[in-house]
Design a protein around this nucleic acid. Structure first.
Lengths: 147, 147
DNA sequence: CTTATTATGTTTCCATGGAAACTAAATGAC
DNA sequence: GTCATTTAGTTTCCATGGAAACATAATAAG
């Protein structure tokens, strides 16, 4: 089998696995009233002191319309604070709240085992290989950005 | 970095890449009035002489409600034929039409290059490794089936 | 044979997220 | 400084797909 034959199979599997994982992640996160995308946005805010929506959009490569709505939801759940930016009046700073931090910690507790189960059969060498390959594919996306 | 640390990163990347690919695939398929999931259902019908919805559901691990709706759409677009099953009156046989076949061939033409571009940086060895790892992960899903 | 359970699909309801049009502010061209 | 363009975010509209309840047929248990 050459690359041209393998590519569609690999791409197909990536789409399939991505969808499955997201669905399962949504189930795992349901008790927290969040889905996977919403949590990933919360988490990316958690990782920084303060961020603007555009940072989140660029980092996670999501639609700005979508991020706008999720930010509103996270704020209404008191998981993040929103502070108007002085430098740029179109924009605001997003910061995680204590409640948000607690939620992230809880989810981390739950997801540790959850994450491991999907990679259970892979050995250390395969994991490293996989990580490297996925990173390369992600970089192709960044090169061929849509926006 | 040990496995426990890598797992969430790998899983995160898989979800991210899956979403991106699906979005791009939807763009590529838009001229055919189909999205990626709909096409994958059409393609799985194309691959067999005749199938029942349950076959598609099991193979692609999709929701039966969803497949039901897509089958209706594909039929309304004259891409598939539906023939009542004699053996099981709850069920029908799905078969690709000539129009459906033509569409699949057209999409194959378009998607050959499309598929390759995402794996462009990977060499043959990496592709094989990746395929193997993805297959292992898919098998974990089959073990831990939801239904 | 009758009743309970399981299997196949469908319908309904609803949250999600993508696309496009929009507002308003910031930046660039001249 | 003024006008055009770009950037940040919002709103609106709509297709998608997941969950649950449902209808109907097939199968199993007694």
């Amino acid at each position: 089998m050459d690359k041209a034959e393998m590519a569609p199979i690999v791409i197909g599997k990536l789409m399939n696995i991505g969808g499955m994982l997201q669905k399962r992640a949504n189930l795992m996160l349901a008790p927290f009233q969040l889905n996977q995308q919403q949590y990933s946005i919360l988490f990316s805010i958690y990782q920084e002191d303060r961020v603007q929506q555009k940072n989140v959009i660029n980092k996670l490569m999501l639609e700005k319309a979508h991020v706008s709505k999720v930010v509103k939801k996270l704020h209404s759940m008191d998981l993040i604070d929103i502070e108007l930016s002085e430098q740029d009046k179109r924009s605001s700073w997003l910061m995680i709240t204590d409640k948000g931090k607690k939620l992230v910690h809880k989810v981390r507790g739950v997801s540790a085992d959850w994450n491991k189960q999907w990679t259970g059969e892979l050995d250390m060498n395969q994991m490293n290989q996989l990580l490297e390959s996925l990173t390369m594919i992600q970089n192709v996306f960044k090169e061929k950005a849509l926006h």
